[in-house]
């Protein structure tokens, strides 16, 4: 099994998180936005797992399982919303829904 400094694992998690963040902010297509959110959640879970591996505790993995549950529920609702959105606006461009403009 690998013996790497815990920082390295956390760096990777942070890098993945930031990539997901850029995706959320840049993409206008809602499917990409949802995928980027998945990436961010996964990165957060990875940080837990890395920390759990570092301290030899099961708690990190348990947090990952909870995040996983949350991601599953979120994807289900998010995809349903996307379907309705497409049905309503005939597009997946998030900027199409801007009636809340002040």
């Amino acid at each position: 099994m690998a013996q790497v400094p815990m920082e390295h694992g956390l760096y990777v998690a942070g890098l993945l998180f930031c990539l997901g963040l850029v995706g959320v902010l840049v993409r206008r297509d809602l499917l990409f936005v949802l995928m980027s959110i998945e990436i961010m959640l996964n990165a957060a879970g990875m940080a837990f797992v890395v920390a759990g591996a570092g301290w030899q505790q099961p708690d990190g993995q348990i947090m990952f399982i909870f995040i996983l549950t949350m991601a599953a529920a979120e994807v289900a609702v998010g995809l349903a919303l996307i379907v309705q959105f497409h049905h309503h606006f005939k597009t997946l461009d998030a900027d199409a829904a801007r009636r809340m403009r002040g």
Binding site: Q3, G54, P58
Partner: peptide, 18 residues
Amino acid sequence: LPPTSGSEVSPKQVSLAL
């Protein structure tokens, strides 16, 4: 931070905690 040890945290441990 401690380096990762490489020793396994088994599914049994996880399940017991869970």
